[in-house]
Design a protein around this nucleic acid. Structure first.
Lengths: 232, 232
DNA sequence: CCGGATCCTCGGTGATACTG
DNA sequence: CAGTATCACCGAGGATCCGG
């Protein structure tokens, strides 16, 4: 019913990778998936997370992703006449790819462009993508991160990470970046000590917990030009 | 240079994942990366691997990827006045993502569309993407796979895989799919025994080696609709 | 308010042709 | 061999309108 079924935007290759791009390679499609990785959402929630995305495109992408078996539309039985969109099992197998690609792209993050928005989902996902599992072995610590319009908390417990919206009543450390400098801490351009000393990051709690934070969440340094590797 | 200061085609999000899509999310871009994952290539080699891609787009993508630090252009010093394109170290860190996404998309592969091409790079990459490393522990075997217009060989040695073009003089098994049915063997819709019995796969060598092949190279079954997982 | 559908403009895509 | 130039077209992008 989405009007013309259209003979699609294909690549003309019998190839799993090409097929993947035909399914989720359209503009905006993977950003919709990204937001759904964090859980089911309503149409307007998706809009809020993708403010620069035209609604008509969001509608079109959701239909395409539903047809491809990546997204499932669920009509809420209650009275509020709502519809939620969630990843199918097939779609949620993109989780790891989303995290990997997010970390890869984070290396190219410098300063936010004035018009760029920083959404709640980005804040949450940035912690998942940069989490260093091997550095969290035997660690048990809770962080609360306060951004200008929103707060998230991260629970690290024995190699596992759980991030959610909102404050945490029993956080070991409250981190409040002043300006877009938390990324510098993650890349290592800014040490934990310098971050506090310069006032670029305000903290409540023991300062050494920020050292721990900067070991648990890392953006690897941007590689220098060198010879490319083939496959292994 | 050629590039006008058009800053468009962004997503307006300060987010590593959005940045990644701005770099390699344009149409055709990741397919160029895919072919370069297997090693440096000349312009015309890339054209051969992407026959349905307009040359003007290939040229544009190569320029963009070079500017982003994903691809390096190398002018050959010799007389043949050639130029090769190769992934930088940054670009080659997409290797794993390309393999994962290729495997993900392979689940949606059914029959090749009549107009779809099957390229050498796809043949090679399909073995890398479907390789089950944990099933190859202590295994030492060589395969040769003959497709209608091309032949590749796969060397499995103790958990490591090396695939290359051409025949292999000492292959333990020569596999010759008759029609597009090798994918059925990989997904498990077709067992090794049935493949030989039905004549859909011709072999030279011991039949049990085809059993081994079908354990070493797998496309996981397509998931059924069920509840989506959040992140872990 | 929520979940779209519809109309219109603009620019990237894609086919072809041309150049160093 | 490795691009650039030209042009038609269709999907993205923005606004508005519709049914519950």
């Amino acid at each position: 019913m989405t009007s013309s079924p259209t003979r699609t935007r294909t690549y003309g290759q019998y190839c799993g990778f090409a097929r993947a791009l035909e399914i989720v390679g359209e503009r905006w499609a993977l950003l919709v998936v990204r937001d759904l990785v964090l859980g089911p959402k309503r149409f307007t929630e998706l809009q809020r997370g993708l403010p620069k995305m035209p609604q008509s495109i969001l509608s079109a992408r959701l239909n395409e992703l539903e047809q491809s078996g990546v997204v499932r539309r669920r009509v809420l039985p209650s009275l509020d006449a709502g519809v939620t969109y969630e990843l199918t099992e097939y779609g949620s197998e993109l989780d790891q790819i989303v995290l990997l690609l997010g970390l890869w792209g984070a290396r190219s993050l410098t300063r936010p462009h004035p018009e760029e928005v920083f959404t709640l989902d980005t804040a949450i996902l940035s912690l998942y993508t940069t989490f260093q599992e091997e550095a969290a072995d035997g660690v048990q610590v809770n962080f609360e991160v306060r951004y200008p319009g929103m707060t998230v908390h991260a629970l690290v417990d024995g190699g596992a990470l759980k991030v959610a919206e909102g404050s945490h009543p029993d956080a070991d450390l409250i981190i409040e970046p002043v300006g877009p400098y938390l990324v510098d801490l993650l890349t290592g351009q800014l040490s934990a000590g310098e971050a506090v000393a310069s006032g670029k990051v305000l903290i409540q709690g023991e300062a050494e917990h920020l050292e721990l934070f900067s070991r648990l969440f890392r953006i690897p340094p941007a590689p220098e030009p060198s010879t490319g590797t083939v496959i292994s």
